[in-house]
Design a binder for these strands. Sequence first.
DNA 1: GGCAAATCGTACAACGATGCAAACCGGTGG
DNA 2: CCACCGGTTTGCATCGTTGTACGATTTGCC
Lengths: 337, 337
Amino acid sequence: MAATLRDVAKLAGVSFKTVSNVINDYPHVRPATREKVERAIAELGYKPNMSARSLRSGRTDTIALAVPELNLSYFAELAGMIIAAAEEKGLVTLVEQTGGDRERELALLHSPRLSMTDGLIISPLGMGQEDTEALNVPFPLVLLGERTFDWPCDHVTMRNEDAARAATEYLIGSGRRRIAAIGENEAEVMGSARLRLRGYREALAAHGIEYDERLVVRATLWHRADGARAMRELLERGVPFDAVFGFNDTMALGAMRVLQEAGLRVPEDVAVLGFDDLDEAAYSIPSLTTVDPGREWLARTAVDTLLERIGRGGSDLPPRTKLADFSIVERESAPGG
Amino acid sequence: MAATLRDVAKLAGVSFKTVSNVINDYPHVRPATREKVERAIAELGYKPNMSARSLRSGRTDTIALAVPELNLSYFAELAGMIIAAAEEKGLVTLVEQTGGDRERELALLHSPRLSMTDGLIISPLGMGQEDTEALNVPFPLVLLGERTFDWPCDHVTMRNEDAARAATEYLIGSGRRRIAAIGENEAEVMGSARLRLRGYREALAAHGIEYDERLVVRATLWHRADGARAMRELLERGVPFDAVFGFNDTMALGAMRVLQEAGLRVPEDVAVLGFDDLDEAAYSIPSLTTVDPGREWLARTAVDTLLERIGRGGSDLPPRTKLADFSIVERESAPGG
DNA sequence: GGCAAATCGTACAACGATGCAAACCGGTGG
DNA sequence: CCACCGGTTTGCATCGTTGTACGATTTGCC
């Protein structure tokens, strides 16, 4: 069996409480004692039992992260950033995949598993306004993501609407007028689909371009195949267009492939613009102009916000909403105007 | 504060151990009692304290997974599969990123954090044969990945050499004779780079094609940019070639992009074949022919193997090596012969 | 109705750590 | 010479749960 405090204490010739004091950097320990204890720790290869420590102290130094799926590049990269940010703060991260499924998201919020963690960062997809009550949980919770409900907990999010408006204006600024949008999804009442669509419409309106719903294609899952399918549908409609705004990079890349298969040149015939700034966007052919929603900032801020909640007095803080800054990353698929 | 066993017991009018018995499906509990207790549990929203349970029972129902980085698609997809496989078995997964760094891999093996888990699945990149001793750890450990050292612990891996040979033979079978290889890395003594190179050479030899080292390009990180850089280098060398075998999909995709930029047609002028079968490979232009190394099987088997170790008697099992079956996924970038 | 056997519930002791408060220690000041 | 002091160390209770051992109760059966 692994060594315990008592084993170390016996070897060092002190009480086990003194060993505990050394480990926890209790200030009043004589240097000689400390050294003696540390030698014993090294000799036995002692490692504190985290379960016992958690039970007693109430802290686990572990956070939970719930994302839809890791094989969606956006969430994989986001998860990587969050795990790294957490690690910098001395936390480890437990990862759950919800599949974007409302039931599983709700179940997670009530999972006894969370008592092994100090808090949860969740990027919900399936939950809606009707689930507000479920967010009233007795542990630190940070919502991460694209929605802007009036929810009773901390919320770190991106400027979906502003960014989508800016992206559309970027396309308009480069001379495009018939701009298609891929990814609309009326089922998501206030999700990013709705918000990005709204930004898109605002930009059109601001420039006196009439909204044409034949240029808007629905896509629920936002996988690459959905982008491809949407583009095929768009081409079949026979409505002319000179630009495509994909509501995420993955769909934009799928759409771009179909465009090229159809013999259309990007960006000469059709400009393509995405959203997310995945690693991949820099390496497609042509490379993808996209919106960087500030993911690195989102990741760090989500962790910091959760830590504020975890710390003393954290539960007294009012719910906060933090917004990331975005930027448009110009690449080949949609050169600036 | 959250409710405890005692609170439930008080409400249900039984002793707290009886509540524990109900929760743990202890057989001898009268249905009436059970129901009474369950009602109390529901009313209080009681959830067992996992730290206390772990401390007492010694099991955490948590495993740790260490991969280099989640923003490498290969590892993101693999991690997603492992987390899903673990969840099916009732385990949650703690994810660590090592960056492929030897020091961090070794540090992880000694981390006190692991006492919060029942075992570790690690996909090592930086460690080498000289670190065998470090793998002699007092907890269940499964090595996942591409190396085939003679290591003293369970090892779930793929047929790197066979698969690379088969991939090369596939290209030869389709009529290619001057086949370039991207991803060689002599620093990795027995890593997948070396093994895949070996398989490549065996296939050439078996078909009487002379090995030409000018067709082999080095790449250490296997990112997309490395594939692109390698392809530029290859083109600069001016040595003719009619096929490229990328040692992973990401590099193959980067290389394919450079080929196309240079005006070469894929697959007419140059066939491209990758390794990994990432989701992405199905959606590139052209779609990428690649080796499926059996990742789904690897993920499930890694979890199952770890569970066998965790279970009773697990520490008596001898070290085992399990090999996944591979297959070649034919797509557009390299049609069959 | 009575006795043994099955069943059900309870008390107590861990698991390994931390928080609190009390005990110890040598040195100082009165 | 003793009370007192800061710094240092220790003992004890405790976190919430499960395992063991054992009483208590019901049940089955003659």
